[in-house]
């Protein structure tokens, strides 16, 4: 498929899902009720619009980061969790809830972003001496394990069951009840992170030939690594800071789109951002339509979709000459 056709198609899909996300929910709000005195318009303007904007931004950040990391690590199983940024942001948010008794979005967001930035600085330090993707992935794994252990520790010292419940609710990942405050906090960081990541395409293409060949083509691998650390830190850190942990988007989306774009890593970046946005918008709309008063958490829904996909991927890779 022609790349421009694919991008146009995905953009149209994202636009449709965005509009659908404004309409879908326990109360269906058709476009005829928008911009009117209809009380349902308040639901759209105050609740669903920020949610849809965040769904678009978070999905784009996760899809793009997944495509970049798969290209950089030359590993189709890589996703944003491998660099540890999600775990660090989660640690920051959990720490704010438990240690600072924080309940305001700004404090939780700020704490998650600080932890994500700290984690990325540590990752940059650990991986700096080496240009190797192996050092990068090992450093990310160490960071994710450390942040995961500290998060478990912080949960274990939670002062009361309400705090524990709040943490678990937050960790499961959700766009429920997000407001324009969260949009204002997160979207600038997500946008800056995505721009940084889009500048890695050339290096990712060269890395198809391995690290030595990429360097011989004029690629500065350390600069690429830093762009990825900063870009993933900003985009994924801000995403996790407002939604909690939403997994599998960064893994699934590049795989779904690779057959359409071809395997060249740079060709996959923009489509993955659009595909990620489409997937999260679609999943977030669907979780609202389930029966009962409560919603399935977005993170849980993505895991339910993602796990079978992951197994199917593993089975396919076992038959592939590329692994």
């Amino acid at each position: 498929m022609k790349r421009s056709t694919l991008i146009l198609g995905l953009t149209a899909l994202v636009a449709l899902l965005f509009l659908g996300s404004l309409m879908a929910g326990k109360a269906w709000v058709p476009p005829s009720a928008w911009f009117t005195a209809d009380p349902r318009w308040w639901i759209v303007a105050e609740l669903r619009l920020p949610r849809a904007i965040l769904g678009l931004g978070v999905g784009a950040a996760l899809g793009l980061t997944g495509a970049v990391l798969q290209g950089f690590l030359r590993n189709p199983l890589a996703d944003p969790s491998v660099v540890g940024v999600s775990s660090c942001a989660a640690l920051g948010a959990v720490g704010a809830i438990v240690l600072l008794s924080a309940s305001t979005p700004l404090i939780i967001f700020g704490s998650a972003m600080l932890a994500a930035a700290g984690g990325m600085a540590l990752l940059a330090g650990l991986a700096w001496r080496s240009r190797s993707a192996v050092a990068f992935i090992l450093a990310g794994t160490v960071l994710a394990s450390l942040a995961g252990a500290l998060t478990a520790f912080v949960i274990s010292i939670a002062p009361n069951p309400y705090a524990t419940a709040e943490i678990i609710d937050w960790i499961m990942g959700s766009l429920t009840d997000r407001s324009f405050s969260e949009v204002q906090f997160a979207m600038p960081f997500i946008a800056m992170g995505c721009v940084a990541l889009l500048f890695t395409g050339r290096a990712l293409d060269a890395l198809t030939l391995g690290e030595d060949a990429a360097r011989s083509l004029g690629i500065r691998l350390r600069r690429t690594q830093m762009l990825i650390v900063v870009g993933a830190g900003l985009a994924v850190g801000a995403s996790v800071a407002v939604t909690g942990v939403v997994g599998f988007v960064g893994l699934i989306v590049p795989h779904l789109l690779r057959p359409l774009t071809g395997a060249r890593p740079s060709a996959l970046l923009l489509p993955s951002a659009l595909g990620g946005a489409a997937l999260v918008l679609a999943a977030d709309s669907l979780v609202r339509l389930g029966p009962g008063a409560t919603e399935i958490r977005l993170g849980v829904a993505m895991a339910l979709i993602g796990t079978p996909f992951f197994f199917a991927l593993l089975l396919r890779m076992r038959r592939s000459a590329w692994i």
Partner: peptide, 15 residues
Amino acid sequence: IGYLPQDGAVHWDVT
């Protein structure tokens, strides 16, 4: 300087 490495790695199935 054009460099052709020994390993001949091609990590993605590009054309």
